Simulated assay, not measured.
Amino acid sequence: MATVVEPLPSLPLARVRLAPHSALPRRIDGAWWPRSRDLLGELPLLIGTLPRLWGQITAVTVNTAMWPMSPGRMLVANHVVLLRRSTGPYGRHTISLLSQGRGRRELLVVPPEVDAADAEPLMAAAAAGDR
């Protein structure tokens, strides 16, 4: 009798578009379109897709209007990421990613409930970005 081995479920890929690498700083470094507002579920997928050039992400700042629930820290890929929360209108639709020694990167966050027809142009524009 043959044994049937079920394939392991694959993790969904993060929907991210990043601006091309540049030595000059940018206001927005790309865009992220999470599938939900579950930061604990979505953030590891995002961090796992970032280029090595960005370094190890050690802290993330999110806005409470976009992400209502989050602990003060979480374990991602065997390292602790500090989660900071912002309450002001600045940064409501962005996420700030900090890497020690590599600086801070800002991504536009397209709300998960936005449909693909609207999300795709926003992400493309953010990835093309201004310097």
Rank of each mutant, 00 (worst) to 15 (best):
T3N: 05
V4H: 10
V4M: 09
V5T: 15
P7C: 08
P7E: 14
L8C: 02
L8F: 10
L11E: 15
P12N: 08
A14C: 09
R15H: 11
R15Y: 00
V16T: 10
R17I: 00
R17H: 08
A19P: 03
P20L: 11
A23S: 14
A23D: 15
L24G: 06
R26A: 12
I28T: 15
D29N: 15
G30T: 04
W33K: 00
P34M: 06
R37G: 14
R37M: 04
L39E: 01
G41A: 13
E42H: 08
E42F: 09
P44I: 06
P44L: 08
L46P: 01
P51V: 09
P51T: 09
W54A: 01
W54L: 03
G55F: 10
G55W: 07
G55S: 11
I57A: 02
T58M: 06
V60S: 06
T61R: 14
T64V: 15
A65S: 14
W67T: 02
M69W: 05
S70T: 10
N78G: 07
N78V: 01
N78F: 10
H79L: 07
V80R: 12
R84W: 11
S86G: 13
G88S: 14
S96Q: 13
L97E: 01
R102G: 00
R102F: 14
E106Q: 11
E106L: 13
L107G: 04
L107K: 07
L108S: 06
L108K: 05
V109H: 01
V109P: 00
V110R: 01
E113W: 14
D115V: 12
D118Q: 15
A119T: 05
A119H: 05
P121K: 08
M123W: 09
A124H: 09
A124V: 15
A128G: 04
G129Q: 11
G129A: 15
D130R: 12
